[in-house]
Each structure stands twice: as structure tokens, then as C-alpha cells.
Amino acid sequence: MLPFTRTLLCACLFVSFNSMAAGMVPETSLLIVNEGEQGASMDVKNTDADAQLLYTKIIDLPDDPKPGLIATQPVVRVDGGKTQRVRFVLKSSAEPLKVEHLKRVIFTTIPQREKNKVKMTFSQNLPVLIRPAGLELNLEPWKGLSWHVINGNVTVENNTPYVVRMEQQVKLLSSGTLATFDKTYILPGEKMTARAKSKISASEKQIEIYPATRYGYKASNYIAELK
């Protein structure tokens, strides 16, 4: 089983555990924010019988801090069995967005205090994809990546306006050499170099990657040409 598959499996188990223990269930595994709508909403359901507090926090990634995004109700009480719609507002930019951006949103469940009882808090960490107004939908953005072997290293460059999510490990063909990137996504305009145990030969012509769909599920393996 690939590490990425294991990661997704663990994530699913984590969400399931949170759902059983804390009762708060987001409606999807990805928050999509469209610039043309100036924000987005996500429903979070409290499947427990008891009321709980829902704390929402936006996390800016160090390599992609802008544009700004805020949750209009960072802390809200959700009664048992009820659904809370969490609204997110995109801060205005000086210029229209030209490429997609990536953030994270953390939903933390805080149970009500009860005398002589200890209750745990639980969190769910989901990706946030911010899309420019008018940008055409691309369900296979990894096909636009450019791959190269430079000085014994494999590099990838994203000259598309799309965020690409993929497994950190890639495989060179036909040698079977494995190389690993430092993260599971590449931003528009970004260039990354993978680490391998030995230098990669310039004779390598293809590379096999393991991309993810917009919602984080494993897509079919993809073989790209090395230039």
C-alpha cells in the first residue's frame, strides 16, 4: 500500500473517530472558496444528543499566506442533532486572483462541561481551495506539470494556475528509483526538487506519480515525460 493511501486511510479513520466521539461532521472533505462569490459556506452537523461548541480556525500556509480568509463565526454553540452553517468571507485583494490558493481550516469540537466528568476536545483539519473568478475547472491539473532531471535530481515545475496535490513519493521509469518531495502539494508557479538515495540518471525518460483528486482521494497513477 502506498504511503499516500495509508495517509488517506488514517485521515478517514480519524474523521470517523471524531464523528463518533465528538459528533461534529463536516459535509465534505474540502472547502472550496470561489472568488466570484466572495466566500463560501460549509455545513457541520452535531450528531450527538448534547449541545457542543464548534470552534473554527483558518490556517495560512507559510508558502501561500494570501489572500486572507476569515470565518464569520469562529465560535458557535450547536445543539444536539442540529446543523450549523459556517460562513467564510474572502478578503478583498488589490488585484483579481490569477491562480488557485491553498489553506487549511480546523474545526474543533468542545463538549459542554459536566461536573465530575472529563471530556476531550477533537479537531478535524481540512484543506481549503481558493479559486479565481472565471478560472476553468480542471479535474486533472497534474497533467500540466513539467518534469526534469537536472544535475542528478528530479524536479517538477507547476506553470499552471492550479494547485496540484499528490503523493510525496514518485518513481522513475524504467529503473524503479524512488524519490521523495517535502510536501503533498505544489502551488502555481512553484518549483520543487525531490530527494533520492542516489543520483538520477539523465537516461531516465519517464516518471510515475500518484496524484490526488480535488477532495483528496487517490486518482489513477499518471506517467509523465521527463525532459
Rank of each mutant, 00 (worst) to 15 (best):
P96I: 00
Q168T: 15
A212Y: 09
R113V: 08
A219C: 04
N159L: 14
K103D: 02
K227Q: 11
I59V: 15
R113T: 10
E208M: 10
T193M: 10
V99H: 02
E167N: 14
A22D: 08
L135T: 06
Q73N: 13
N221R: 11
N18P: 00
P67R: 05
T47S: 12
S19C: 09
K57A: 13
R6N: 11
P132K: 04
G80K: 07
D64G: 04
P74R: 07
L2F: 08
E157R: 12
A51G: 09
A202S: 15
L30M: 15
P111E: 03
L97F: 00
L90Y: 06
I207Y: 02
Y185S: 11
E225S: 12
S220F: 07
T180F: 13
V76C: 05
I200D: 05
E27Y: 04
M192T: 01
Q206V: 00
I110L: 13
P65L: 08
V25G: 02
M20S: 13
V170D: 04
T180P: 01
D182G: 14
Y222K: 02
L178I: 07
L90V: 08
T109G: 02
F17I: 11
T5F: 11
E225A: 11
L97W: 01
A71G: 03
L31I: 11
L135S: 05
R131D: 00
V99P: 00
S174I: 07
V156H: 05
N138S: 09
P141A: 09
T108S: 11
N159Q: 15
K57W: 05
V118Y: 09
K103N: 03
V78K: 03
T7N: 13
K115L: 14
A51E: 10
A202R: 09
N221H: 09
D79V: 04
D43K: 15
A212M: 13
T177Y: 05
R77K: 13
V164L: 10
P65C: 02
E225I: 06
D182T: 11
I209W: 04
E100L: 01
G134A: 05
R195T: 14
T160N: 09
I110H: 05
I110N: 02
L13R: 12
Q206T: 00
K103E: 03
D50H: 07
Q169A: 13
Q168L: 06
L226K: 02
